[in-house]
Simulated scan of single mutants.
Amino acid sequence: MLQELLSPNQVVLQTVVPDWEAAARRAGELLLSGGGIEPRYVDAMVDTVRTEGAYIVLTKGFALFHARPECGVLRECACLLTLSHPVAFGAGENDPVDVVIAYGSPESDGHVRFLQELAGLLMRPGFLDELRTCRSYTEVKHLLMQQE
């Protein structure tokens, strides 16, 4: 599913951002340019972290930005960023973060299948380390296809 949502324009590797908010906004730009969200969804992702905290950091070095469907999701969408310089999210031992996915679903339960797939990927030994070494969209797609 993740590989189906990621087009070449939805993957940015080794980008530089100064902090977690800039990472959220950069990811939001990708979702917006892909037509998956309205601009207000970007602010909603940022507001979610500000109000709920860094629970979006699911494991060491990995964060999943998202917000409620009613905050401007037009269709299911996702993007992937890897950061050349990890940034702190305030997530304790799971900081700093250098792999970010942003996701949107127009339905409140539409994220369940996506989260199941993502959990499976994150539990695979070495997956995040391999993702960190990818230098092209083709390498990311190949890695995701291997994981199916």
Rank of each mutant, 00 (worst) to 15 (best):
Q147G: 01
A24G: 07
S84M: 15
M1K: 08
I37K: 00
S108R: 11
G53T: 08
L5I: 01
S33W: 06
P69F: 12
L144C: 05
H66N: 03
C77F: 00
T15I: 14
E21K: 12
L115S: 05
I101V: 15
L64D: 01
E117M: 08
G120Q: 06
D95M: 06
S33I: 06
T59D: 02
P8N: 05
A22K: 02
G92A: 14
M45N: 01
R40C: 10
Q3D: 15
N94Q: 12
D47K: 09
V87Y: 02
G126C: 01
V11E: 13
D95Y: 09
L118V: 09
G61M: 01
E139Q: 14
A102R: 00
V42I: 15
L131A: 02
L30H: 13
L5P: 00
P8R: 03
A63W: 04
T48A: 15
R26M: 14
L81M: 12
P39A: 11
N9C: 04
P106R: 01
P18A: 15
R75P: 01
Q10F: 05
M45P: 03
R124Y: 05
E4T: 11
E139A: 11
V140K: 03
L83S: 11
D129F: 10
E139I: 10
L64Y: 00
T133N: 04
G90T: 04
R124G: 00
G126L: 00
V100L: 11
E107G: 03
A23E: 04
Q147E: 15
A78N: 01
E93H: 13
L30N: 13
I101E: 01
D47R: 08
A78W: 01
E148W: 09
F89Y: 14
R26K: 13
D109Y: 14
Q147T: 12
P39I: 14
A91Y: 11
R50H: 10
F62C: 02
